[in-house]
């Protein structure tokens, strides 16, 4: 077991995915989505990754560092993340790293370059997929570039000596896999919901280092090729057609619904 676990959590800033669909303005000409009137947040599964990291260092000792890559990263969003229980944060913030044009390969490359610059880590945690890309590609990419093993869809992680055991989500249960450290692990919400930072922790977080880098600051060797083209971006159309069952009394409506569904041979 490493003396002290050093964990980096890859935390992506995204427009709040819980915002109403109307707050995601789609421009099909420019093939981009612009959030309107919703705040940036850490992508939900990355919060789970942060929670997992904090639980592990509570148990084994060590430190958690947060890493985000993007454009216009919000210091306060990452400050809140630090307050949950991290030591510091690193933001690779550059107009060139606009999430609307950044593909999985480039993202994985920049995250990996940044991780190399940050130091040595035992564990790199990510979300199972980002709320905007819904891709689930970056963890394998980081592992490939850094030459590390990767386990996806972790429901729980236990450190045993210089290895970890991971319960990996399956549709009807889980499987247990073991890999040596250092390793990359992507997590699911089962790992635990993020805790609320205490007010005192938020104050303390302000004294912790938040490092900002440009793309050029971290860029290592080799620029990834453009592997995919985004040809189109559109909003799927839905045609509402709901028949509402109404009644004076609400439980009457429940009974009428049952009647209707049986009559229509739906149930």
């Amino acid at each position: 077991m490493p003396e002290e676990l050093k964990i980096v959590v890859c935390a992506k800033q995204v427009p709040d995915p819980e915002g109403p669909p109307s707050s995601f303005e789609l421009n099909s000409e420019e093939k981009r989505i612009t959030p309107r009137g919703i705040p940036p947040v850490i992508s939900p599964f990355d919060e789970n990754a942060l929670e997992a990291a904090v639980q592990l260092v509570e148990k084994h000792g060590g430190t958690v560092s947060i890493l985000g890559v993007g454009t216009n990263l919000s210091a306060s969003v990452y400050l809140k993340a630090i307050a949950v229980g991290a030591e510091d944060s690193y933001m690779v913030d550059d107009p060139e790293l606009d999430p609307a044009i950044l593909d999985s390969v480039t993202t994985a490359k920049i995250l990996s370059d940044a991780i190399k610059k940050m130091g040595e880590f035992d564990l790199i945690l990510t979300g199972r997929q980002a709320a905007d890309t819904n891709a689930g590609q970056v963890p394998a990419g980081i592992a490939h570039i850094l030459g590390l093993p990767v386990v996806t869809l972790a429901q729980s992680i236990t450190v045993e000596g210089d290895k970890i055991k991971v319960n990996r989500e399956l549709p009807d249960g889980y499987e247990v896999v073991e890999v040596p450290l250092p390793a990359v692990v992507s997590v699911t919400p089962d790992i635990g919901e993020i805790r609320y930072p205490k007010i005192s922790a938020i104050k303390a977080a302000k004294k912790k280092p938040q490092t900002k880098w440009s793309a050029a600051d971290v860029a290592g060797e080799g620029v990834p090729r453009n592997l995919l083209n985004l040809d189109e971006l559109f909003t799927p159309v839905r045609e509402p057609h709901c028949e509402f069952i109404e009644a004076e009394d609400i439980s009457e409506a429940g009974a009428m619904l049952a009647q209707k569904l049986v009559e229509e041979k739906i149930l």
Binding site: P17, P21, F24, L26, K31, I33, A131, D132, T133, N134, R225, N226, L227, L228, N229, L230, D231, E232, L233, F234, T235, P236
Partner: peptide
């Protein structure tokens, strides 16, 4: 090949083609 994929949780659909 053109591949359709939901992004932003399904708020939009992106269509990709490959250079590789």
């Amino acid at each position: 090949l053109k591949c359709y994929k939901q992004v932003y949780g399904g708020i939009a659909v992106a269509v990709y083609s490959f250079n590789t």
